[in-house]
Structures are given as structure tokens and as C-alpha cells.
Amino acid sequence: MAETTSPARRARAERPLSPHLQIYRLPLTMLMSGFHRITGFGLYFGTLLLAWWLLAAASGPNAYAKFEWFIGSIIGQLLLLGYVWALIHHMLGGVRHLIWDTGRGFGPQEREWLARATIIGSLSLTLIVALVSYLFMGGVR
């Protein structure tokens, strides 16, 4: 770790520091905290897919054909799958945060249960969306 150059930081009084990432082994709750931020940041750019889709649909058949070609490619399908998973995961993580906002769900068992529900829920719901999309909606073409 590089020494910080901020004078305020250097003059900081000797106080106990909170242990950070390097100290802990990675518990699931910490991992899900990171996932929430990472999926949110991914969705930030994933929204471009949505913008492209809407703009292409509004523009006409040629523009839409270009979008369909991209989203139908392997990369496009993976991006779309990732976007949908991130959307669902971030939504479930958000529900968890809303529960915490009410002051509930902080107990050792509860927070562990919530973390598991978030990841298992997001993966299963994404699988269901993908299966329904490909089996009953004809998939991405």
C-alpha cells in the first residue's frame, strides 16, 4: 500500500483502525455487499443496451436488424443474460437493503440467510427467465 500524501491523513491521531478487506476471510455477506455495488455499476453501462434497443425500435427496420444481429450474437446473448442477472440480483439486494432500512435483519442468522437468499434467488430467477425465454418465447433471434 502506498503512503498517503494528504497532510490531514499523516497527522492523524493514533486510533485503532477498523480491519478491512485484507484482514477478513471472505464471508458471504461481504461478497454480496460487493456484488450489489458491482451489479449496480454493470447495470449503469448495461442500460446502453436498453437505450440501443429502444432507439433501434423507434428508428426502423434497418436499425432494428443491426440491434438484433448484435443481441443474437454470442457476445450479445451473454451480455443480455448478464444484464438480466445483474438486474434481478441488484433488485433482490435492494430488497435486502430496504429490510435493513427498517432496522431488521441484522442478526447473525438473519443476515446470513438474506445473503444466501439474494444469490440463490437471483440465479434461479435468471435461470427461469432464460428458460421461459428460450422454450416458450423463441429466444433471442
Binding site: A56, A57, G60, P61, A63, Y64, A65, V84, L87, I88, M91, G94, V95, L98, V129, V132, S133, M137, G138, G139, V140, R141
Partner: peptide, 22 residues
Amino acid sequence: VAGIPLTIMAIVIGMLLLGRNQ
């Protein structure tokens, strides 16, 4: 809070539009 129902509906709308022409 608003995003929860809106996201679910947006995903369903997206699925219903799969494979349709422009």
C-alpha cells in the same frame, strides 16, 4: 421501492417482445 415492480414489469415486457419484428 418504485424500481421493484417496474423492473419486474420491464423484464416481462422484454420477454414478450422477443423475436418480434421491428
